[in-house]
Design a binder for these strands. Structure first.
Lengths: 257, 257
DNA sequence: TGCTAAATCTCGAAC
DNA sequence: GTTCGAGGTTTAGCA
């Protein structure tokens, strides 16, 4: 693995290394004593102090002080860099076109420079997944509707799988489609297909329910046209419910032991 | 300077080094291949990939992927850490009390560990915030209008806070709402509310003035309808004025010494 | 502790 | 491009 590591380098060597690392799209870390200036939507200045500067592989810039969650200064991905040395100092400028913004950093003391190409293609999953939402509904059907009982889930029905089958308190068949994010028109059409496919086998009325944290704009009318009901449900809410259910399970188990 | 630097260390040595660095309140950098889990207000999972983990001197935790401005996972300052090794992997857990949140990171490959105590006591100056605009108006009310005197600011009036209260050269009460950016309709409605709330207590006419660098498109008519005056004022202009004011203060002080 | 409003908010999706 | 809405938003200032 190509891995650059410099301890307390001279500014010229530092500049060369950073230039080269930028071209190779490496992740660059610089630790040292610097001053920082920012001009753009606002302006800021930060006098001399020891900080961590990071340039990411998409050319995002972060400058972190030794404390605090947030970077003290930053530049979003895609900005242009100018690396130079002047008066025995290493200068790094990051320039953004729109809105016009510039960050200038000047290091008068360098402690560490590291540059390496990091591979990270993993997908990030936040909140409850759609599967978690399904599990929450199965565990607590009342979060969709009072009196709802779940009969089956992930049932194969020709165009695909019905997320949840249930029966409401009046004995009517309920088909639930779950979306983790704002539901669009495709979710409604999907439900309509399931209703059509299911109603052929069953001789009674079916209630299609779309469960999602929100619906996309301009979909409200389509919902009404297709006679699809919407039930707002947040992935976070589901995660919470699952945590409660798991906790209950644990307690039940511990009582058995 | 106490400076720890390990290239591709074994997990046991890594754990020891990090433990020690935590006790010495050093800034810790770990680069390697890891998976990340988060449970708390929400839940998240991130499969294996190469990332930068940073623990700051106030025990803030940041996990950065090789792209993007934001950390993929984080923990704010002050959380508790558990460092361990298990099955040849380095485990770092960061636990927050309130709200209860935990981040678990497991490194199966370590590339670099660096730990050092950074000194950074400099003050950060950000200019031209909304607060700066307010301070500039208080210091030099004439930038809004000649003859204006400021009576009060940040005054609680039921729907919120009035930015600035003043009296114009004709003795009329002035209510000022400040926006750092182009003012939208909500600013006008806000002003209207303050006028209504204030006029109930005062038996005289009130002049609502909207101070902002510009107004949003299509708001001009609403301004007239609501009888709100608009005064163009740029945040940058305010920063300049504040600099002058501060300089004046310094000179006055130095004359006293 | 809880709320409110601002942020160089960022980030993504829709238009 | 611009606008709109959400975020584990964070952060600061107060009741």
């Amino acid at each position: 693995m190509t891995f650059d590591l410099l301890e307390a380098p001279q500014p010229e060597l530092a500049a060369k290394t950073i230039q080269s690392a930028l071209q190779q799209e490496k992740f660059i870390i610089v630790v040292g004593r610097c001053t920082v200036r920012y001009k753009g939507r606002a302006t800021s200045s930060l006098d001399t102090g020891e900080r961590l500067l990071a340039i990411k592989q998409d050319r995002a810039l972060l400058i972190h002080r030794p404390y605090g969650y947030q970077p003290v200064n930053w530049q979003p991905p895609g900005c242009r860099f100018e690396i130079s040395t002047d008066n025995d100092e290493l200068r790094i400028r990051a320039i953004r076109r729109s809105p016009p913004e510039t960050i200038s950093v000047s290091f008068d003391q360098l402690k560490l420079i590291a540059a390496m190409a990091l591979k990270d293609l993993a997908e990030f999953f936040l909140d409850a997944s759609e599967e978690d939402m399904q599990r929450a509904i199965i565990a607590r059907p009342e979060i969709v509707e009072r009196g709802l009982r779940v009969i089956e889930y992930e049932k194969r029905v020709e165009p695909g799988f019905v997320d949840v089958y249930g029966i409401d308190q009046d004995g009517r068949l309920v088909i639930i489609e779950i979306k983790r994010k704002a539901a669009g028109r495709e979710a409604i059409f999907q439900l309509a297909k399931y209703v059509k496919a299911t109603s052929e086998g069953v001789g009674r009325s079916i209630r299609p329910i779309l469960v999602a944290p929100s619906i996309a704009k301009g979909i409200q009318r389509l919902l009404q046209t297709m006679r699809v009901e919407f039930r707002k449900l947040d992935p976070k809410q589901c995660a919470k419910i699952l945590a409660e259910v798991d906790k209950g399970e644990e307690e039940r188990l511990s009582r058995w032991i």
